[in-house]
């Protein structure tokens, strides 16, 4: 698997979040993903990005365009140095939220359902990294 191109975007405010969404959309269009797939990926990115801004104290989103044999993929990696998540499986459950209930607690679990590959790494006190990939 090779990375054809990549770009790192800062993610601290909700304006940054809008820019990340637009970038993900543009990359998906460039690789000719279907409209529904584009929408799913942008929505998942929005969920994860907001989690990071609200709970992770901000961080960055790294967009990557992948080539794996004959298939193309778009991967987005969200990384923050925030408080981290103690119980990941609990955080993936629908309805779970620690904050003031800004979303509907669908952030992580919802995003996972929308994409092809979902990976999460987190260490309390060190930060969280969530990787989502959509394949064509």
């Amino acid at each position: 698997m090779t990375i054809i191109k990549s770009e790192v975007l800062p993610l601290f405010t909700d304006d940054d979040l809008v820019k990340v969404r637009q970038a993900v959309r543009a990359w998906m269009i460039e690789q000719e993903f279907s409209l529904v797939t584009q929408t799913k990926m942008v929505t998942a990115s929005s969920e994860l990005g907001r989690n990071m801004v609200v709970y992770g104290g901000g961080g960055c989103a790294r967009l990557e365009c992948l080539n794996d044999f004959d298939r193309r993929g778009i991967r987005v990696i969200f990384e923050d140095q925030g408080p981290g998540i103690a119980d990941i499986s609990q955080a993936l459950t629908d309805g779970f939220t620690t904050g003031d209930g800004l979303g509907l607690g669908l952030g992580l679990g919802g995003a996972k359902r929308l994409v092809n590959d979902f990976e999460i790494w987190s260490e309390p006190g060190h930060g969280t990294r969530v990787t989502i990939t959509m394949w064509k």
Binding site: V36, Q38, T39, D94, G109, G110, R113
Partner: peptide, 14 residues
């Protein structure tokens, strides 16, 4: 609501 948006919302679980 656009079809792609509706499909995504359902998948998301809203």
């Amino acid at each position: 609501m656009r079809p792609a948006v509706a499909i995504t919302i359902v998948e998301l679980g809203l």
